[in-house]
């Protein structure tokens, strides 16, 4: 009976050790993915939010979410696309809520408290085209927006963008074509 108990305890210890080893292996693997794909998540968030602090926060949140569900990801090679989509979605949510807040504050603020409109000189000094481009991008449908952002990130081919989004390369090309055409029309 005592032997049986000892054998049983040994089994439990072995199982715990195996579980611990599996967990640390998974953590190491995830750490490697973070180093590889973390900056991409940041860039996607930055492309939507255009604010480094917010983008950093969103990208970290996206990585945490990915970590929590890392076990469910069967094909680890799809991690990058998965993370990009989480990051984009979170960034969009934050961007929308920021815009709503901004609108509310503008509506409620008294006229004298509102910031003064930019002067002609300020407009001339600021990069007007970039501002218009950002506004035009904000007005684009989500599927065009993410394709434009991912295609503009250096180091990724259209095939890789298609892989990240889980759509055929032809779809990425046609979306990119339509998005660029729409942007040009808006900025002309």
């Amino acid at each position: 009976m005592q032997e049986l108990a000892l054998i049983h305890q040994g089994e439990i210890l072995e199982r715990d050790a195996a579980r611990e080893a599996e967990r640390s292996r998974r953590d190491r693997e995830f750490e490697a993915r973070v180093v590889e794909c973390g900056p991409l998540a940041f860039r996607v968030a930055q492309g939507v939010l255009r604010n480094a602090a917010d983008a950093e926060d969103v990208a970290q949140e996206a990585l945490l979410r990915a970590y929590r569900k890392f076990d469910r990801l069967r094909d680890v090679t799809r991690f990058r696309g998965w993370l990009v989509r989480i990051s984009f979605r979170l960034a969009l949510d934050r961007w929308r809520s920021a815009r709503r807040r901004e609108r509310r504050e503008t509506e409620w603020s008294l006229p004298e408290r509102r910031p003064a409109p930019p002067t002609a000189e300020e407009i001339a000094v600021s990069n007007q085209f970039q501002a218009r481009l950002e506004q035009a991008l904000d007005e684009m449908p989500e599927k065009f927006r993410i394709v434009l952002l991912l295609a503009a990130i250096q180091g990724y081919t259209l095939e890789e963008v298609a892989g990240m989004l889980g759509v055929p390369t032809g779809t990425v090309k046609s979306r990119l074509f339509l998005a660029r055409k729409q942007l040009a029309e808006k900025l002309r």
Binding site: V34, V35, G38, P39, F42, R43, V44, Q46, G47, R50, A52, A55, E56, A59, Q60, L63, L64, F129, Q130, L133, E134, L137, L148, L149, L150, A151, A152, I153, Q154, R180, L183, A184, L187, R188
Partner: peptide, 26 residues
């Protein structure tokens, strides 16, 4: 020229380097 500006603007928007605090923060 317009399309070049669009491409340059998009590249500027999408290629920000992650700050050094990013990975330690994660």
């Amino acid at each position: 020229s317009l399309f070049r500006s669009i491409d340059a603007g998009l590249r500027a928007m999408a290629n920000h380097e992650a700050p050094p605090s990013f990975l330690p923060g994660v």
